[in-house]
Amino acid sequence: MHLTNIETIPGKTITEHYGIVSGSTVRAKHAGRDIMAGLKNIFGGELKGYTELLSESRDEALERMKEQARSLGANAVVNVRFSTSSVAAGAAELYVYGTAVSVN
């Protein structure tokens, strides 16, 4: 599965177009991480727990998008975009979308 965030896959031609595909996850952080982050907050700096949590969820969203593209018979997704929104206190939604295409 090829993924790019530009409109084409360089060096390949798009033969078919399947429309938009997307994947999303809503994740809440668990209490343990929250307490650690609260301590880390005093000194500032990177909150590794949150970084990991968000990248895991983003991978999950990407995986769901790829799954959807695969089920349509596509072998690439172009023009991929990510977006993040916080839906509730302590939970974030990671959303990824793109255009499923066939290339050769």
Binding site: L3, T4, G11, N41, I42, E46, L47, T51, L54, V80
Partner: peptide, 17 residues
């Protein structure tokens, strides 16, 4: 171009008290 790949990086940083 011979190869293309989506790459990404992320970080969460907090401010001190």
């Amino acid at each position: 171009v011979t190869e293309s790949k989506l790459v990404s990086g992320s970080v969460v940083i907090s401010i001190d008290h």
